[in-house]
Design a protein around this nucleic acid. Structure first.
Length: 589
RNA sequence: GGGGUCGUAGCUCAGCUGGUUAGAGCGUCUGCCUGUCACGCAGAAGGUCGCGAGUUCAAAUCCCGUCGGCCCCGCCA
């Protein structure tokens, strides 16, 4: 089909183009047929331009214009004309002109789309995902993808300017049963053997440091076969970074530099550095989360010392077992009804709490079923410690330390939602969370696991505890947290074989286990591994927050649903027996 | 694995204490309309009430199961 190349995009024409003969190619956005004159808005990635069919100007074109429908692909030739006085559209950058059509070629017809191709449509997401190619025509989605593109380019330019080199690492690699579940890829040529898709290029980037690449980064897809969330997809993009001969401080400096760029280029905001830092312990104690949202002012308080000598059985038990008593003031919620408090109690119980202690603060004192268990002195200390005022509601959770703090953190966010404390236009809050524990106790298997990964260096002053009390060992690990989301995480790695062996031993690996699982990394480290460390950005999350979206699906071109399927191409899908046979696989059941 | 919520026209929803022919707005189609921009006016078409089984004289409505979307907990080195 013959058609002329466009002379302009649909977002380009202005008053200075008046009088020019132009060619536009694009999609029919909206159609307003007034019987005589027909107005059509034409859309492409760059914008929208109104084209006009007038019978007196060109009868044949007008006749052709009659049959155009939404989403038809057209090429039009015409003359740019100033819109008559009073008919300008100030919502369009092209709104002072329109194009009087001389000729229209229908490049393709289109079925009526199942939903309108425009922003702010009210349509279920599953429909958008099934027809993702139409969804992505919406200006908002195109802007999201363009923002994402801009953010890739900023990162690449930034890291390049800092002497980092981008290296691609394998997508087919060895499965490591540590951490998240691997996606497995069966080998045809090696019966019974499997590749795994990388959860992250962790081991490869460390080997690149051994190889002397010094500074590496990569925009890289990673895969984790775990359940999804609004901010979690089974395949996602990291900006992966590793540096040699550095400590935490140099990594922070590099990362903060990139964040300054992002704040400036995306939000036009000046980010003040160095960023605030919070230790893991402090974050848990005050915010009940290792990714605290500091836009919410509410702070939790540890109350163990207030109830040290309490006769209240619940508090006694907690303290005796080394647990936590955590309190939170819900300002102005002192008028919560019994019913509202029951709803709140139910909310936190469903998350795993044993119960919720609530106390209404009145002018005349504290009001709660729990009060009969507390001495007047304890009541006074409680009020003072929390800084509670009449009209407030006090919430207290108690039990095993980390679980209780974490539950209180969820309650804190719930109260923030109820009190509407997170305004969309609130100043973004970016901070480092540092000094994560090296080890995490797992109740189910009754053993310690690496909280980050087994190559994370403990703080050197904590190495002595590796033989005595693993719960005391803190790691040289850090997360970057933006508005309550973990947007990057990393650590200084172990580069010393002796320390690495000590770590494997602490995690319960025999030397044979370690060799079997991580042998290639261990071997590499015997040939001169420099001190090194790094970080990886969760790029989708970062893009989501910078785009002001609530779901990473809105900044990913072709995302999966919460159950991990693609509604558009309907994967995962069954495969033929022949395919399975070739891979030496027989399905069970 | 668990909890919550939703599923009715192409879309967004109402109807749900069982009872006539399941409605509305938008969209689509047809006709009229020469400056619209949410064009307007008139008319029409459009339904496996997610699916299955059950209770009942009778089920969109009640019960059970199942599938799917979204959110959360667990999980995510």
């Amino acid at each position: 089909m013959y058609f002329k190349q466009r002379t302009h995009t649909c977002g380009e024409l202005r008053e200075e183009n008046i009088g020019q003969e132009v060619v536009l190619n694009g999609w029919v956005d909206t159609r307003r047929d007034l019987g005589g004159v027909i107005f059509i808005e034409m859309r492409d990635r760059y914008g929208v331009t109104q084209i006009v069919f007038e019978p007196h100007f060109n009868e044949a074109a007008h006749h052709e214009g009659k049959v155009l429908r939404g989403e038809f692909v057209v090429s039009v030739e015409g003359i740019v004309r100033k819109r008559p006085e009073g008919t300008e559209n100030d919502r369009l950058p092209t709104g002072t002109i329109d194009v009087l059509v001389n000729k229209v070629i229908i490049l393709n017809q289109a079925k009526t789309p199942p939903f309108a191709i425009q922003d702010d449509i009210d349509v279920h997401e599953d429909l958008r995902l099934k027809y993702r190619y139409l969804d992505l025509r919406r200006p908002k989605m195109q802007q999201a993808l363009m923002l994402r593109h801009k953010m890739y380019q900023i990162a690449r330019k930034y890291f390049d300017s800092k002497d980092f080199i981008e290296v691609e690492t394998p997508v087919l690699m060895k499965s490591t049963p540590e951490g998240a579940r691997d996606f497995l890829v069966p080998s045809r040529m090696h019966k019974g053997k499997f590749y795994a898709l990388p959860q992250s290029p962790q081991q490869y980037k460390q080997i690149l440091m051994v190889s002397g690449l010094d500074r590496y980064f990569q925009v890289v897809k990673c895969f984790r076969d775990e359940d999804l969330r609004a901010d979690r997809q089974p395949e996602f993009t990291q900006i992966d970074v590793e540096m040699s001969f550095v400590d935490q401080e140099q990594i922070f400096e590099v990362v903060e530099g990139l964040m300054v760029e992002y704040f400036k280029e995306v939000w036009n905001k000046e980010l003040v550095t160095p960023l605030p830092r919070l230790t893991y312990d402090a974050a848990m104690e005050k915010y009940g989360s290792d990714k605290p949202d500091l836009r919410v002012g509410l702070e939790m308080k540890l109350l163990n010392h207030v109830f040290e000598n309490s006769t209240f059985r619940v508090f006694q038990d907690s303290i005796a077992k080394g647990g936590a008593i955590s309190g939170l003031v819900a300002p102005g919620c002192g008028d919560y009804t019994r019913n509202q408090l029951d709803v709140l109690t139910d909310f936190i119980k469903k998350l795993g709490a044993g119960g919720l202690i609530w106390i209404r603060v009145k002018e005349e004192g504290l009001e709660s079923p729990t009060m009969k268990f507390l001495t007047p002195e304890e009541q006074a200390n409680l009020t003072a410690e929390l800084g509670a005022k009449p009209g407030d509601l006090l919430l207290i959770l108690t039990g095993a330390k980390w679980k209780t703090l974490s539950l209180m953190g969820m309650l804190r966010l719930e109260m923030a939602r109820r009190l509407d404390l997170i305004k969309p236009d609130a100043e973004p809050k970016l901070l480092w969370v540092t000094d994560f524990p090296s080890f995490e106790w797992d109740e189910e298997t009754k053993r310690f696991y690496a909280m980050h990964h087994p190559f994370t260096s403990p703080r050197l002053e904590d190495v002595e505890f590796m033989d005595t009390d693993l719960s005391k060992v803190k790691a040289r690990a850090y997360d970057l947290v933006l508005n309550g989301s973990e947007v990057a995480g990393g650590s200084i790695r172990i580069h010393d074989s002796a320390l690495q062996n000590k770590m494997f031993k602490a995690l319960g690996y025999t030397p044979e286990d370690a060799q079997e699982k991580f042998g290639f990394l261990m071997n590499a480290f015997q040939y001169g591994a420099p001190p090194h460390g790094g970080i990886a950005f969760g790029f989708d999350r970062l893009a989501m927050i910078f785009a002001g979206e609530q779901s990473i699906r809105d900044v990913i071109a072709f995302p999966k649903t919460a159950s991990g399927i693609s509604l558009m191409d309907e994967c995962p899908s069954p495969v033929s027996d022949d395919q399975l046979k070739e891979l030496h696989i027989r399905l069970r059941g």
